[in-house]
């Protein structure tokens, strides 16, 4: 496993005949923050559930660092049901015994502002997500898998959520792997960006490299045919093209003005490009 904490080897998951995850091999390092983006139905959530052990793959396997076990992996999804009829206190006590957690519950309840006598099923989706996160945090997770949960949180809970994740990254050097649709608030966390499309990863780059390699150019006349582009947005007023990978010689050669692009816009261009390719097929 060398310096990797979690690895997927030749992972394939089929729903009926169609592969949702198609022969994926990828490895994650301790403490890294990764975002997996891509069009709807790309297989992102299925891949994450496979890493979490919630789905057994049809082929391939998930390998964990030998010093870790499943309880070092936290999986957060808004589709999980969790101790529904219990009070938070009962759920907490059970969870604590199950995972051998020493930390007192009081701290957790204060941190998330929820009364210990409330029942899990009475919580809003957002409150439940935060409660679940607090349970996972007490496990001091080595890996946190987050399947898009932010869209269910209001702005206040979103902030609490992000702060808790940032604390875990700092306290336990937790590797955070998240699947995102809503990008805005989390855009500054990831150091590695992966784009999934049709059950495979079409992009896997460090954020730094990616931000250097994607540029945007506004143009009106002819587009130089030797410059490949990812995606185009056009209106009556102007056309914009996102290029990847950018070469330093292009501005001088083409006379076009290339601009830097923020990560959220980069991801949008890749997803837009995936839809264009799909239409062409």
């Amino acid at each position: 496993m060398s310096d990797h904490i979690l690895e997927a080897r030749n992972l394939t998951v089929r729903f009926g005949k169609r592969p949702a995850v198609d022969d994926v091999t990828v490895a994650f390092k301790p403490g890294e923050a990764v975002v997996i983006a891509g069009p709807n139905g790309a297989g992102k959530s299925t891949f994450l559930r496979c890493l979490a052990g919630a789905i057994v793959p049809d082929r391939g396997r998930v390998l964990l660092d030998r010093n870790l076990s499943g309880r070092n992996i936290g999986f957060l999804s808004d589709r999980l049901s969790l101790y529904e009829g219990w009070t938070l206190e009962e759920a907490w006590t059970f969870h604590r015994r199950e995972f051998g957690i020493a930390e007192p519950a009081r701290q957790t309840f204060r941190a998330i502002d929820l009364g210990p006598r409330r029942r899990v099923k009475s919580l809003s989706v957002g409150e439940r997500t935060l409660f679940h996160l607090s349970l996972l945090m007490a496990q001091k997770p080595a890996v946190l898998l987050i399947d898009e949960v932010l869209h269910a949180l209001d702005p206040y809970l979103r902030e609490r959520f992000l702060e808790a994740v940032i604390e875990a990254m700092d306290d336990f050097k937790t590797a955070v792997i998240m699947v995102n649709h809503v990008f805005q608030e989390t855009a500054q966390l990831p150091e590695r960006v992966m784009i999934m499309d049709g059950g495979r990863f079409s992009l896997d780059e460090s954020r730094e490299d990616l931000e250097r390699k994607v540029k945007k150019a506004v143009f009106a006349g002819e587009w130089p045919s030797e410059i490949p582009f990812l995606f185009e947005t056009s209106s009556d007023l102007q056309k914009e093209r996102y290029v990847y990978p950018f070469l330093d010689e292009w501005p001088a050669k083409s006379g076009l003005d290339f601009k830097d692009v923020a990560l959220g816009e980069i991801v949008k261009a890749f997803i837009g490009g995936a839809y264009v390719q799909k239409r062409a097929r």
């Binding site: 923050a33 902030e159 992000l162 702060e163 940032i166 604390e167 990254m169 700092d170 608030e185 989390t186 500054q188 966390l189 990831p190 150091e191």
Partner: peptide
Amino acid sequence: PIRELAKLLKLNPNT
């Protein structure tokens, strides 16, 4: 402290 600034700005502590 790195941790406090990261939480305040919602940034990766490594940043």
